[in-house]
Amino acid sequence: MDTADKKRLLREMLFARRFEERCYEAYVERKIGGFLHLYPGQEACCFGVMEAARPGHDYVITGYRDHVHAIKCGTDPKAVMAELFGKETGCSKGRGGSMHIFDVEHHFMGGYALVGGPFPLAAGMAKAIKMKGGDEISICFLGDAANNQGTFHESLNMAKVWNLPVLYVCENNLYGIGTRIDRSTAVIDQYKRVAGYDIPAAQADGQDIEKVYDAAKIAVDHVRSGKGPYFLELMTYRYRGHSMSDSNAYRAKDEERMWSGRDPIILLRDKLIEAGVITKDDYKAMDTEVLEQIENDVIAFAEDSPEPKVSELDKYMFADNDPYVRGGQR
């Protein structure tokens, strides 16, 4: 990462933060329905890992906290916001919603709402990559609490047995919904759990994007070089509740203050200011520009987009006119 990269990443992370904060407002305004899981606090995880990978080329899959991962893969933020608004122009045509953002063109293979569901799907994509001989890798982002599902263990085992090009990124934000990790999980350091599958694993500071990038570079290189799966744990924190329906009453104020002091955007901003790359005014101008883009470009697009037609309720359930449904083309 050179200086220009860091400056770009600062803007990308700031955009992600403001995007998510605007989602919060739109939810309160009832423009967005359903469940809404926001990403503030964890930005360095996604941006640091994907900076070391190849966004739009490598296949990415994740859980329901998925807006930012899609955007980093190359999805137009307008299409993500339109999806949250339930519009036909949404990246999933208004059929998916916040937890089911998809953009196959940019190899963002979806957000899934079942905790731990993407583990085997990621291994399967890696199997396909291997069969087809591509140089892509499969990257699965999930939280620490997903590791208590059986799919975690089943998938790590298969990924190792079959030497699959899959990178599992664990964003350890210390909470599974509203339950603190030490109350639900025998081992807090998740990378240690991977030892049982003989898969290389590492832990890094998930708030400092440079540290994330360095750790991810090793991970991505390992997987892409054909050496098999890798597990990277990033220690992080989400600043909001698990979802919008979360009272957030389960966390100590001291803990929240400590992690607020380790805001990934502020950390990078201050480093760049200290190094003389940007000034405080530059940052303010960047923020203003981001906010304007979100309001004038992203929100306006979502607002103005049409609703899906109710008459098309069963569209996309099955393939259109698949000949084999009728017994092939005889």
């Binding site: 199997k127 396909a128 799919t151």
Partner: peptide, 26 residues
């Protein structure tokens, strides 16, 4: 062995793996 795969006894895991492979054309 790459195409006729003896799986571990992990029904949800290997079914999910097959589905993920199908996403990419397998």
């Amino acid at each position: 062995a790459e195409r006729v795969i003896d799986t571990p006894i992990s029904e949800n895991g290997y079914t999910g793996l097959g589905i993920g492979a199908a996403f990419l054309g397998v």
